[in-house]
Amino acid sequence: MTFRARHLLGIEHLHPEEIRTLLDLADQYVDLNRRAVKHSDALAGLTQINMFFEASTRTQASFELAGKRLGADVMNMAMQASSIKKGETLIDTALTLNAMHPDLLVVRHPHSGAVDLLAQKVNCAVLNAGDGRHEHPTQALLDALTIRRTKGRLHRLNIAICGDIAHSRVARSNILLLGKMENRVRLVGPPTLMPAGIGEFGVEVYDDMKEGLRDVDVVMMLRLQKERMDGGFIPSEREYYHRYGLDAEKLSYAKPDAIVMHPGPMNRGVEIDGEIADDINRSVIQEQVEMGVAVRMAAMDLLARNLRAAKDEGVYV
């Protein structure tokens, strides 16, 4: 088994072998989660703190459940409501929490790089639950697990990521992960929602959705934030749905067995047609949620093992 990372800050620094190790372990946790008694003691005695500086329901719930199923003591902190309002800096908050001896720190922050900064200041394992538009590694890992289980492999697939690429940390982590695992990645969306320098990402870029979906194995839709719909980046919601919303007609360009994914929460009728989202033959959106818990269990388990090993070697006091 190889998984050397001390923190899970992004996909960027993971080796393909580490990704495989994590997904293999996650497979085991999927089995555990489907049993009547869903419990392990892998994190027994450890403290997990979820620090969310940005509102989140599903990711936070998923991390909380993952920790509890592994026997950790889990604490949730809604950071928007507390010390930030009192003017405390991120680093001071981190040092304060660090003094309470947590073992796992799960952090979401609205600014890119904030989780990296925090990880430098604490001596526990840090998991990035999304930083600005930088990375959201557990989302990419749960997407990878979903693809691997439905398609039977995680390489040599044609995968289209569609929508607001520019503002999406999910897209960045997925581009990195799918590229590392040797897939062909296409990005589909209006040019105003594509990041600069996209030509150097090792991906194919399409602004025509039908062309972009032609013969792909996987269609990954992204959420379009409400605040980007009113003329700033795209002319209107209805024009966006017409050109880039996933409907049956556009999906017909993909392979007949192509699967449809969405990280949630969905805007039905904006980026995806409700019927497609609910089509159990095409949509794996519910599976993604299930895989999310398993992937987060696996990630925390592996980081906790590394943390214990490091403590045994006297790296941390």
Binding site: R172, P195, F201
Partner: peptide, 15 residues
């Protein structure tokens, strides 16, 4: 500055 680096790091950038 806009480009691959800023995009990968998710930083707001200027052309």
């Amino acid at each position: 500055t806009s480009g691959k680096f800023a995009s990968l790091k998710g930083l707001p950038a200027v052309s």
